[in-house]
Design a protein around this nucleic acid. Structure first.
Lengths: 142, 142
DNA sequence: CTATCAAATGATAATAATTATCAAAAAGCA
DNA sequence: TGCTTTTTGATAATTATTATCATTTGATAG
């Protein structure tokens, strides 16, 4: 895991707690998780881990670019591993499923902004809401 | 003001408090405001208005489509009047200024999603961050 | 192997934003 | 004027997050 190098090179340690948080983020198909979900998952393998540690670890992983915050507008902040690929999320309003959306081109977006404003975009945040395929297919829904 | 009709037709009243919140949203150049900013502004003309009333009023205005929530990732939820035109916001990371971005085409976005996923987008949320013109022009910045 | 020192943890307190509750006040209407 | 429903203000309760701090852990130097 490359995360260890990135931690070490900045003087941080890859503790068992941090490793467990990384594993939680990697598992479960990469669905973005919030702090309490991660805390629950990690507690299975690592009973006694403090919630504050989970918060601190996620903050650190984001700072190091290992994880990314995801805004699903579900009340709490979610996180996922940074795959390096630019992506956003599709949130099904019916079943809650979250799937990635890769069709955003940041350069094109920044250009589009510059076309209409004197503004240099350095980052953005996009969330998409709607109904997923299985909720629309007849006989399924929910 | 058309807001009164929309309220009345659903059995709600346009109280002085609600009118004051609407005026606060309309004033100040339409910069999105959060609850406590609105509460402060309204308190000038309307001392004694409760914070809970501001929260409730904003919730109601959003429900009726008169106002829209704006997510600037500044800790609290912001609101602006619904102009009917689809827009997002450019947030300057240097001076905090917020300006509208009108170059988003929801239909095109939904299509782009459908190109790669079996997902029907019904709404989305976009925020753009960067550096505004006056912060980049030499001798200005801040 | 042990002393040392910074990093990390867990418990918990403190904040901050928001929502819920409820008695009292205001507004519409018969 | 009396009745009913809406609305309000005060305040308690929730929820998410951040801060604090004593203790533990891990790496490192001797």
């Amino acid at each position: 895991m490359d995360a260890e190098r990135r931690l070490r090179s900045r003087g941080y340690r890859l503790t068992p707690q941090r490793r467990a948080v990384l594993e939680a983020l990697a598992g479960e198909g990469g669905r973005p998780l919030d702090t309490s979900q991660i805390h629950k998952r990690v507690s299975r393998e690592f009973p006694g881990i403090g919630l504050a540690t989970v918060y601190r670890t996620l903050e650190l992983l984001v700072e190091l670019g290992i994880a990314l915050p995801v805004h699903l507008h579900e009340g709490s902040r979610h996180y996922e591993l940074n795959t390096g690929e630019h992506r956003h999320h599709l949130v099904c309003l019916s079943c809650g499923e979250v799937q990635p959306f890769r069709g955003c081109d940041p350069g094109e977006l920044a250009e589009r902004v510059r076309d209409e404003s004197d503004f240099l975009v350095t980052s953005h945040c996009l969330s998409l809401f709607g109904i997923c395929g299985s909720c629309r297919s007849p006989g399924r829904g929910r």
